[in-house]
Design a protein around this nucleic acid. Structure first.
Length: 742
DNA sequence: TACAGTCGGGG
DNA sequence: GTGTACGACTGTA
């Protein structure tokens, strides 16, 4: 007797003994834990005698494993003779590791595809989407999707969300309370007694039965603390819904990627419900929880993983799904973590892209136009994929500059993967364009759009990353060659229409022509560029004014990515200057932003310089009178190496050393926050137990940073540092000499 | 003034 | 069990 169920899939993971465990949020509001029998196949390839040894090796063990010889498609090499090894999904990864240890010389395929991804590829269902299941006594007989991951209007799962946050940042001060929230009600839980806390939390979990535990510092502080307390009090504490499964803990690690060290804190994954630590989730300021759910939905990656991994991991997984669906084997690569490390490297999209020297100084009548999702559009338009580049066939296109052929006889794996993401993002953006500014659906759609954009952006980097599973450097070269070509054609087109090109950068152009002030006036340019390049281009906005800054070291040399401008709408666009940098103290960044906002309301400093000076002098007085909150003076930097490895005691190194002395060790890739102080050692680490002495704060240093930041945004109007010093520190009346030159 | 060491951006 | 670009800028000799 089978029952029919429908609802949202929350999670799929390998069971302990047999098949997989599914969690379903039923349409009836119940949460179902289901089992499903499932086998998975991976493939081994190598010299025939070795494969025969492997065959005997497995047979001797009398395990329930199905072996066969077959032919399968390889992405690059066509059909290959392989040995298929089919086993229960629950044991597959253990089995593979066991075999691989004894036969490390063989090539393996499909051996490390995550269970949820296998599942998504096979049944076309993924987390947060609705499906229909026939069930017999908790065992899934059949499952089918009710929603498509490419639809934009799927009903979201009605998640029960429990929020947990400490009253203060635990790395700074010892918290005394937790704030535990559910459906808008927040209750404090004392941290004084571990046993009571555990009992209280256990009760809250039981009472509310949340689908998502959304914490602050859950990964790096709360769950490790709870485990420790549980051990001390000899209580068993399992925050998972699946009571037979302990939490899965991933250790903290620092890792290196292209000149930058990153640090990932310890992570706690739950079974049957999700834990997301907002403070340990990647990209959380670009998109929020609905963006993470969107990425999990389209990639097939489990929600908890997606929240902590880079979008690059998501793209890799999507390519795996495309491959599996096509019957193409996915090669196993060692050092699985390595490919994900490139998460930052791939963001180096300037490498190989068009970089142009802007015309230094102030410009008016400037319009910015950007190619829309340029790299993914190029990938899609020219069918660029690891298996199509540099492949000769009767039907090829040839990459400009490189003379490299690209096979056009069949759709590439990469464009096939990206195309639906591109389309979905366009559909979401079209929907957004039709909503009013205050529509309550806006934030979630915006977040989803940003999440998809990141998947697209990152796909480009992965295309060229040699260690990525589907990476091939020629694909990367082809993409950047096409992008340079597109920008050059756009430039020629613009110039032919009477525009002056003042700057080009990666996928954007700044063009200038008197009298072009409306969408209608710029439309002919957009149309011409689109027809010249085949790529979509859109108007970004009209600038009231824009300034491109010179290098600080040589004022004759322009820097492609230091500029700021004000759109006609009054909105600012700022790149490369102090306020964009994470290591600028908020006090300084706020002042610079305020100056720019004043300038953005007017056509230049003549209209607002007095107001600016008054404001800056006010902030200076506040600083000197110690009325500026110390948090606003914090410099925040990422440590690049272990404290002892610093040869030069930089402020960050000295701050880290202070923390090291009190056993609050900091690791490479971790953020260190400090305040500049006078005398030795010149810094006060924020996370020291004692607060900084306000009398020790190095006011002069902050004054210098402040004046530097203010000068940076006034200099396009010919204002020099010396004048700013005069007006701010000494006699503001001198400004009249600037305002009304004799 | 030179240069070694250190840092972070961007779509 | 490895990887380590590039350009800008700071601080010290």
């Amino acid at each position: 007797m089978a029952d029919e169920l429908s609802g949202w899939l929350l999670d799929v993971y390998a069971a302990d003994n047999q098949g997989v465990v599914l969690w379903l949020l039923g349409d009836d509001g119940r949460r179902y834990q289901l089992r499903q029998r499932l086998t998975t196949t991976f493939y081994a390839r190598g010299p025939f005698p070795r494969l025969r040894e492997l065959w005997r090796f497995i047979r001797r063990r009398h395990m329930p494993i199905c072996l066969s010889r077959t032919q399968r498609e390889d992405l690059f090499d066509g059909r290959l003779d392989v040995m298929a090894i089919e086993a229960d999904t629950a044991v597959q990864s253990r089995l593979f590791r066991y075999i691989q240890r004894r036969f490390p010389d063989l090539d393996y395929y499909d051996a490390d595809i995550p269970v949820s991804v296998q599942y998504a590829a096979r049944f076309d269902v993924s987390s947060t989407l609705r499906c229909r299941v026939s069930v017999n006594e908790g065992a899934v007989l059949d499952i089918a999707p009710l929603d498509s991951r490419w639809q934009i209007d799927n009903p979201p799962p009605p998640l029960r969300i429990l929020t947990i946050a400490p009253n203060v940042d635990p790395s700074h001060r010892a918290p005394t309370h937790l704030h535990v929230g559910f459906e808008g009600r927040v209750i404090p839980y004392s941290l004084a007694n571990g046993r009571l806390l555990l009992i209280g939390l256990q009760a809250a979990l039981k009472r509310h039965d949340p689908d998502l535990i959304l914490t602050q510092f859950g990964d790096t502080w709360l769950f490790p603390l709870l485990r420790e307390e549980a051990q001390k009090a000899a209580i068993s504490f399992n925050p998972s819904r699946d009571k037979e499964r302990p939490c899965r803990i991933k250790k903290a690690n620092s890792y290196f990627t292209y000149g930058m060290v990153l640090h990932r804190g310890e992570q706690t994954y739950l079974h049957g419900r999700w834990h997301i630590d907002i403070k340990n989730a990647l990209q959380f300021n670009e998109y929020d929880i609905s963006g993470i759910l969107e990425q999990a939905r389209v990639t097939g990656m489990p929600v908890q993983e997606m929240a902590r991994r880079s979008p690059g991991a998501g793209i890799t997984v999507m390519q795996m799904i495309t491959a599996v669906r096509r019957g193409v084997m996915v090669p196993y690569t060692k050092q699985q973590a390595e490919q994900y490390k490139s998460a930052r490297a791939l963001l180096r999209s300037d490498k190989g892209g068009m970089v142009y020297q802007p015309q230094i100084g102030l410009h008016t009548n400037v319009v910015e136009i950007d190619f829309v999702s340029m790299y993914p559009s190029i990938i899609s338009l020219f069918n660029i994929s690891p298996e199509t580049v540099k492949v000769n066939s009767p039907h090829v296109t040839v990459v400009p500059e490189l003379n490299m052929p690209i096979d056009q006889t069949k759709r590439g794996l990469l464009p096939e993967t990206l195309q639906p993401i591109l389309e979905k993002r366009i559909a979401i953006r079209a929907r957004l364009a039709n909503l009013t500014r205050l529509d309550c659906r806006r934030p979630s759609l915006q977040s989803r759009s940003a999440a998809l954009k990141w998947l697209l952006v990152v796909a480009f980097g992965y295309a060229g990353y040699k260690r990525a599973r589907f990476g091939r450097i020629e694909a990367h070269e082809a993409i950047t060659a096409y992008s340079r070509e597109a920008l050059l054609r756009a430039k020629e087109t613009a110039e032919a229409l009477g525009y002056e090109v003042v700057h080009m950068y990666i996928d954007g152009l700044w063009v200038k022509q008197k009298g072009v002030k409306t969408k209608a006036a710029i439309q002919p340019l957009l149309d011409s560029i689109e027809s010249a390049t085949g790529l979509p281009i859109a108007l970004k906005g009209f600038y009231k004014w824009i300034a491109f800054l010179p290098s600080k070291l040589d004022s004759r040399i322009p820097v492609p990515n230091r500029y700021f401008g004000a759109f006609e709408t009054g909105e600012l666009k700022v790149r490369g200057i102090e306020m964009r940098r994470h290591d600028t103290p908020p006090f300084v960044a706020d002042i610079q932003r305020a100056v720019l906002e004043q300038l953005a309301q007017t056509s230049g400093p003549n209209d607002c310089l007095l107001a600016i000076i008054e404001m800056v002098r006010g902030r200076l007085a506040a600083l000197r009178e110690k009325k500026v909150a110390p948090q606003l003076l914090l410099v925040s930097q990422i440590l690049s190496r272990p404290v002892e490895a610093y040869k030069v005691p930089s402020p960050a190194a000295r701050a880290a050393a202070q923390l090291g002395e009190i056993n609050k060790q900091r690791f490479p890739g971790q953020r260190i926050r400090f305040i500049f102080t006078m005398g030795h050692p010149g810094v006060h680490a924020w996370d020291l137990p004692e607060d900084v002495d306000p009398d020790l704060i190095d006011v002069d240093r902050y004054v210098d940073l402040m004046l530097r930041a203010v000068t940076a945004v006034l200099q396009p109007w010919g204002i020099q540092r010396g004048w700013v010093d005069e007006w701010i520190l000494r006699d503001w009346h001198q400004v009249y000499f600037y305002l009304s030159p004799a």
